[in-house]
């Protein structure tokens, strides 16, 4: 069996607004558009993947929050309705997806060997979080590939960003080892925003783009700093300043997704390709791809 590989890793944020703006048939609410910059960015990411062959999408999601270890989907098929608890007016999505349970369990097992607390989620009534659905839809709207979904262990809340990162580095390594052992080709997604301070009010027309901007300049500056490091191959430095960034901008990097991705990619020194940066209800979102073939 050939050695498995990561064909690309991507920062793929999950504002449900982007799905709402696309008006896919699976989503009940109907919009007049909006957030084109980010949606065009996802289009560019999809184009960059067009000539890549891969077997599975592995996603680490901030919106499946677990406190007793890291959990992995362990049921082969899920079909249900996902309603965003924060923006139910925008996201009520009928999903139908498959899970690569074999690879999911393999990552689980590799992670367990590193000392992480891990658990398979085997309840068929479980509802998939809207972050996973949003990122996967925007990257692969045909839903023709199985996914592996990894929960966000909230060790940052219990300890610190540093402890969270130490755990996510282990999880990223375990993910890479399991992929290589599987012989499969995988796309990895870190499903998170950067700065994450929201507006607490929504325009009457949610897609009114005259109302959209970063919550404050300070967040913008931090986001640009992080993007600069990611796009210049200084990912270890980016991880080093992650604790400050996370604290200063209430960043969604607290979930560990981006640290997991960088570790799985072995902290790329090649440039990440930025496809877009834009704000959604005040939060900062970047779409960035890392192609190991460009190393």
């Amino acid at each position: 069996m050939a050695k498995g590989e990561i064909v690309m890793g991507a920062l793929a944020p999950h504002p449900p607004h982007l799905v709402y703006a696309e008006n896919p048939s699976q989503n009940e609410p109907v919009s007049e558009g909006g957030w084109e910059e980010l949606r065009w960015g996802y289009e560019r990411l999809r184009k960059s993947l067009a000539d890549k062959e891969f077997d599975v999408i592995i996603i680490h999601t901030p919106h499946w929050q677990t406190y007793v270890g890291t959990h992995f989907l362990g049921v082969p098929h899920f079909k249900n309705l996902s309603v965003d608890p924060i923006f139910p007016n925008l996201f009520r999505y009928n999903y139908d997806l498959t899970v690569d349970v074999e690879l999911s369990r393999s990552i689980h097992d590799h992670a367990a060997k590193t000392g992480l607390h891990v658990q398979m989620m085997e309840n068929p009534d479980f509802r998939i979080d809207y972050g996973t659905i949003t990122s996967c839809h925007l990257v692969r709207p045909d839903w023709d590939l199985p996914i592996v979904c990894i929960s966000s262990n909230r060790s940052r809340n219990y300890f610190s960003v540093e402890v969270m990162q130490a755990n996510m580095v282990k999880l990223g390594q375990a993910t890479r080892e399991a992929i290589e052992a599987s012989g499969k080709r995988a796309l990895l997604l870190s499903s998170n925003s950067l700065s994450h301070r929201h507006f607490t009010e929504e325009p009457e027309v949610p897609e009114d783009m005259s109302q959209e901007h970063i919550t404050n300049h300070h967040q913008y500056l931090w986001d640009m700093k992080m993007i600069e490091l990611m796009c210049s191959g200084k990912t270890r430095e980016m991880i080093d300043i992650m604790p400050d960034f996370t604290e200063q901008t209430v960043a969604e990097t607290d979930a560990g997704s981006l640290t997991w991705l960088m570790s799985a990619l072995d902290f790329p020194e090649y440039q990440g390709e930025i496809h877009a940066y834009g704000t959604v209800i005040g939060t900062g979102n970047a779409i960035i791809g890392w192609d190991p073939a460009s190393a």
């Binding site: 499946w64 929050q65 677990t66 406190y67 007793v68 959990h71 608890p85 924060i86 923006f87 658990q119 989620m121 085997e122 309840n123 009534d125 479980f126 509802r127 929960s151 929201h198 607490t200 009010e201 929504e202």
Partner: peptide
């Protein structure tokens, strides 16, 4: 919630709930 304060107003919400952590 983020957008202010939300009040449930579905007269008969019905579902099968599974906890994120204690799904087992």
């Amino acid at each position: 919630s983020i957008l202010g304060h939300q009040f449930q107003a579905n007269p008969t919400p019905e579902w099968t709930h599974v906890d994120d952590d204690f799904h087992y």
